[in-house]
């Protein structure tokens, strides 16, 4: 079984994003960038399937600026076999990303594509579902358990009311949720080894995908700031405040 894992280079989750003064976007100059955390979970899941003898090849793919190569190297150091970098000047929107990924899938014919459920920069939560639509494949989104078996894969999903398990025919799309696994850190020897693993470089044009934006971003602003309130000295004062506000009699 072959697994494709799309990984996005995003602002590190520990960094507090700052909006640019000219309202054109979020300031990413000199900001720490990392692999989208949900994509680390996706890479980890693929590696575990390989370690369990259920998969034999893992290909990581990233769409973005040249530096997304670092993100691919992270995936390779974790244990993926090779990478594909699709260099695009501006970050394409989810639909265009899905269209490029659909072409990669056509070329690579994986049995599973495991994506993150959401990129923590755009918070779109779209690409996996869109890719599934373009390929006409089934989708197991927000996965907390993935069990492949014989032309099928069972996926347990985190849904609003709790958990739900679906059976999907393969090939299939899976998107990861936080409880699927805990991603490993790459060891130093594996980081060294990853430098020799192959990365193929492409452009959206190679795949014939138009990446023109459909959404015009008119402005990006900071949300209204919440004023910090007061520190109350004791429980009695807190009780008084709660009653004053009418939350308890």
């Amino acid at each position: 079984m072959k697994i494709l894992v799309p990984v996005k280079r995003v602002i590190d989750y520990n960094v507090k994003p700052r909006v640019k003064a000219d309202q054109s976007g979020v300031d990413l100059a000199n900001v720490k960038m990392s692999m989208n955390p949900f994509d680390e979970i996706a890479v980890e899941e693929a590696i575990r399937l390989k370690e369990a003898g259920k998969a034999d090849e893992i290909v990581v793919v990233s769409i973005g600026e040249q530096k997304a190569q670092e993100t691919l190297r992270t995936g390779l150091a974790m244990g993926a076999d090779r990478g594909i970098l699709v260099v695009a000047d501006a970050m394409p929107e989810p639909l265009a990303v899905a269209k490029i990924l659909a072409k990669v899938v056509e070329e690579e014919s994986p049995d599973l594509v495991i994506l993150g459920k959401q990129a923590i920069d755009d918070d779109s939560n779209q690409v996996g579902q869109m890719l599934a639509a373009l390929l006409d494949w089934p989708q197991g989104t927000f996965a907390s358990k993935v069990e492949p078996a014989d032309g099928k894969v069972n996926v347990t999903r985190e849904v609003d009311g709790g958990l739900e398990t679906l059976s999907l025919s393969t090939p299939a799309i899976i998107t990861t949720d936080l409880r699927l696994n805990e991603p490993r850190y790459a060891s130093l020897p594996n980081i060294m080894k990853a430098k020799k693993k192959p990365i193929d470089e492409k452009t959206p044009a190679d795949y014939g995908v138009d990446t023109a934006a459909r959404l015009e971003v008119l402005k990006v602003i900071e949300p209204p700031k919440r004023e910090a309130g007061e520190i109350v000295p004791d429980v009695d004062t807190l009780v008084a405040k709660i009653k004053e506000k009418g939350f308890a009699a």
């Binding site: 909006v19 976007g25 989810p94 939560n125 869109m130």
Partner: peptide
């Protein structure tokens, strides 16, 4: 191109949506 989780609809037909864990509000 879908628009996820809008929080406002503006008179000019644009939409506001939070990004970056709500640290930036984009008008699209």
């Amino acid at each position: 191109q879908m628009i996820s989780e809008i929080v406002a609809i503006n008179d000019d037909g644009s939409f506001d949506r939070p990004t970056y864990a709500g640290n930036a509000i984009s008008t699209v």
